[in-house]
Amino acid sequence: MRPFVLGAVAYDPKVVAIWDGFKQFFEDHGLPFDYVLFHNYERQVAAHFAGLIDVAWNSPLAWVMTERIARKKGRKATAVAMRDTDQDLTSVVVVRADSGIQRVADLQGRKIGVGAADSPQATLIPMRSLSLAGLAWPDGMEVRHDLLLGKHGDHVGGERVAAQALLRGEVDAACMIDSNLLAFAADGTLPAGSVRVLHTTEPYDHCNFTVLDGVDVGHVVPFLSLLLGMSWDDPTVRRLMDLEGLKAWRPGRTSGYEQVDMAANSYGPMNELVDQA
């Protein structure tokens, strides 16, 4: 029996441990499973349409790409599952506590530290949110921290570098996911009392498992039932779920991708990719 093949992006060495663990889990439960790691999401999306993988573990931006290409080709993409922790994230824009910046409008003309150009959480979504709050983006106002382009900001590095640049006074604001603000505050990257939350985005959703029409239902059904049946109370899978950062898998939903979908319009490489597809 041909295995069900998953694609994922290697944004960190732990990715190998995660998918090796899932491979073992699925095979122990009778689903032949394999996975392919990609350097970047663009390559993964292309491979998905080329039929090299059956299901993709997609970033929000990769999901939007997949959906747009599918629409153009007359195909259909479906988000079948996601982590509980992928739902209702927000990004925050923080400033130095003593900066005197009180409103979003005060940021006009200042330098704003964002993550990688293709990071939904640290760049695309917060920049759009600030635009909606009235900010314009003349050249030089956006200071990018382009760590590991192609990984869509999955690597926390870009956000950390932006936070450090804020402390050093190189930028006047920094954008990051709410859980990273918590982590940076707890690990001392952002010392107590050093920053203040100026602006918070609307909640949005993060990664999902994406399949395309024509995928073998005989694979997808057991894949989903095993996935959604994983219980964090089960010690044999708890380590795996902790590694992947979730307590429970949820059925996929697409209601949380509106912001990234709108924000992606201003991301040039994305439009090129869709045009060329």
């Binding site: 509980d84 922790t85 739902q87 209702d88 994230l89 927000t90 925050v92 923080v94 506590a97 709410d178 859980s179 603000l181 918590l182 505050a185 920053v195 203040r196 939350v197 918070t200 307590k247 429970a248």
Partner: peptide, 19 residues
Amino acid sequence: DPELVSHARALARRWGSSF
């Protein structure tokens, strides 16, 4: 704490609380 809302949201997601 000016970061209260942001931190509480991240913890609520981690612990499975409505927010």
